[in-house]
Design a protein around this nucleic acid. Structure first.
Length: 576
RNA sequence: GCGCCCGUAGCUCAGUGGAUAGAGCAACCGCCUUCUAAGCGGUAGGUCAAAUGUUCGAAUCAUUUCGGGCGCGCCA
């Protein structure tokens, strides 16, 4: 009975149907019924707006709401009683036994005993997928952490998750990359050659060129162009992809599968996609509309188009360039067909906000393939600005001047990066202040929460030294040695399974950190009460029973913190 | 011109139909002989960008305006 909030919600829905069938009330919109477990203003343990909603739908004048609810509420085993407040909220109170048992489940790490939300369903989460044309930079970090934490969250909820990275190792950008590298190589032999404006100016290519020289010397200066460019392309890709992996590894991100665009091309799966689209009459040769923005060099040309406007997009989209090559979108669409064919129950993509415009066409492809537009879920991350000395750092692709993942890592380390990248809702733009995050003080929420963990651990360790231990058959009872402040935090602790469920269900891992900060704040507050009032201290040698009660919820609290830290991917320090 | 995201305290952000709009930082005032002061308690700080509408009820939904960000051809 962990997911009691859902149970109560189901009960209220059934109860509403009952009232409707008895003609006490006219029909209501059941989606409006809410259950609030976290409000600071609440008077009970769970609050619902139920009465507010049905109140104006009452058609039977003799209808006595309180009586009817009282008759039915007995079927909900965990509700003790309820009170309807003056303004119409129903405040439900949990049974003590239920709170005791729920805490017992947390104590035993049985967070998901009766939820099993995932039920072994297979999910593919594709994220990062940065082009292998340079090192990962700050814009990629957020999507990387978001995708990784979301994956962990789904795994926690009982799904089987495959983390996948799509490597765009084909196309003209890669040719530009190898050209740029070759020019750098030549420059190192004092050959006077300039990079073109749209080539890659970053210093990393100079380093890669030096590696080639170390291995091969000047042997590529006089080789045939085709052979040379093939070599430089492969060398650049191998080097950059492996350094991307190294960088991801810095913040403990590992992918289960890398899929290469070149392999998608070789597999000819695009022909299959072509067949599907053709069969559904979604392909035609035509001329795209003139764009609305800068159209100075626009020329109408006939090309192969996807009739996405018949589906969910507002324009048709090009699949082939006028020179006959597939567009990037065509390959990406083929890649998505490949994903569709791999028996996942659901696909999730995490994209940067700069790709938002591509969502309708990709969902259109999925709809064409699966006839189900909900099969692929595309989540976007807004940009991250880096602040240093209170100033936004400017990044310019043209100068090859950007803050890399490795830079940020060397300045702040793993925990703050991961914590801050998911503590803000993914659709909100973040200002990431390096100075604030480096300091290990109260400016820094990561340390605030880890400190709570360390403090809790230190009490538990001290209790062990004093030989105060919790017996295997111990039954927690909130009437023994538990203050009202502690009861408050205990009731928040037992909401943890529901929080997990919601964070996963809404794809919002930031809910974890909001909750985390809340319970840590409660904990620190209780801790400090022990300074003023000895009876509030956790360990009291003269009251072993009460001490054990406290240790029991403290262990449960620590379990929850450990679990959240492990999902976020940060350390759980027992000492700080 | 069009699409998407956003506008909440000085700053960074929660809250997205419900009870008196919250937290952290910054400011000010207090708390270490004690299980960790990387902490706690308190004070102050708001026209939820603006207007109109829908609703018993709007920061939340709709329309419009203003402001910011990201996109918008056969690039990837």
């Amino acid at each position: 009975m962990n997911n009691y909030i859902l149970d109560l919600s189901n009960f209220l829905n059934t109860f509403a149907s009952f009232l409707e069938s008895k003609k006490f009330i006219s029909e209501i919109n059941k989606n409006q019924i809410s259950i609030d477990y976290s409000s600071e203003n609440k008077l009970g343990d769970l609050a619902s707006n139920f009465y507010l909603i049905i109140n104006r739908k009452i058609i039977d004048k003799n209808f006595n709401f309180e009586k009817e609810l009282n008759d039915k509420i007995n079927s909900v085993p965990f509700i003790d009683h309820f009170i309807i407040s003056k303004n119409g909220f129903i405040n439900f109170f949990l049974k003590e036994d239920f709170v005791n048992n729920s805490l017992n489940n947390i104590y035993n790490n049985n967070f998901l005993k009766d939820i099993n939300h995932g039920n072994e369903k297979k999910i593919n989460i594709e994220f990062v997928s940065a082009n292998p044309t340079g090192p990962l930079h700050i814009a990629h970090i957020r999507g990387a952490v978001f995708g990784d934490v979301l994956s962990s969250l789904y795994i926690k909820m009982g799904f089987r998750v495959l983390r996948e990275y799509y490597v765009n190792d084909a196309g003209s950008q890669i040719d530009k990359l190898s050209n740029s590298l070759f020019k750098r190589y030549k420059q190192l032999f004092n050959i006077n050659i300039e990079l073109a404006q749209d080539e890659y100016p970053g210093e990393y290519l100079i380093n890669i060129a030096k590696k080639i020289i170390k291995i091969d010397g000047d042997k590529w200066l006089n080789k045939k162009e085709k052979e040379t460019m093939l070599y430089f392309k492969k060398f650049a890709l191998d080097d950059i992809i492996s350094s991307i992996k190294v960088d991801l590894n810095l913040i403990n991100i590992k992918f289960d599968k890398y899929t290469y665009e070149t392999d998608i091309e070789k597999s000819k799966i695009i022909d299959k996609l072509f067949e599907i689209l053709d069969q559904k009459k979604l392909l035609y040769k035509g001329v795209l509309k003139k764009p609305k923005g800068d159209d100075s060099d626009w020329e109408p040309r006939e090309q192969l188009l996807f009739r996405s406007s018949k589906l969910l997009d507002n324009e048709d989209r090009a699949l082939k360039k006028s020179n006959g090559e597939w567009t990037y979108f065509a390959n990406d669409a083929a890649y998505h067909l490949y994903k569709c064919n791999r028996n996942f129950d659901k696909l999730i993509n995490i994209w940067g906000s700069d790709h938002i415009g591509y969502i309708p066409r990709m969902i259109s492809i999925i709809k064409a393939i699966k006839n189900n537009e909900d099969y692929l879920n595309i989540l976007t991350c807004q940009i991250v600005s880096i602040l240093e000395n209170k100033k936004k750092l400017k990044m310019s692709k043209r100068d090859g001047n950007f803050i890399t993942l490795a830079d940020v890592f060397s300045k702040v380390g793993n925990d703050p990066i991961r914590y801050y990248m998911i503590s803000t809702k993914n659709e909100t733009a973040i200002d990431f202040d390096l100075d604030e995050v480096i300091e290990k003080n109260k400016d820094n929420k990561v340390f605030y929460c880890q400190y709570a963990y360390a403090r809790a651990s230190s009490v538990i360790n001290k209790a062990k030294q004093l030989n105060i231990v919790i017996d295997e058959n111990y039954k927690f009872n909130l009437n023994i040695g538990i203050s009202s402040e502690e009861l408050r935090i205990i009731k928040k602790i037992i909401c943890y399974p529901y929080l997990l469920y919601q964070a996963c269900n809404y794809n919002e891992p930031h809910r974890l950190t909001i909750y985390l900060e809340d319970i840590c704040s409660e904990f620190h507050s209780i801790w400090n009460k022990g300074k003023d009032n000895e009876s509030m201290r956790f360990i009291d040698k003269n009251n072993i029973q009460g001490t054990i009660s406290k240790l029991f919820w403290l262990e449960s609290f620590r379990n929850v913190l450990y679990d959240i830290f492990s999902i976020i991917g940060i350390d759980s320090p027992e000492q700080m």
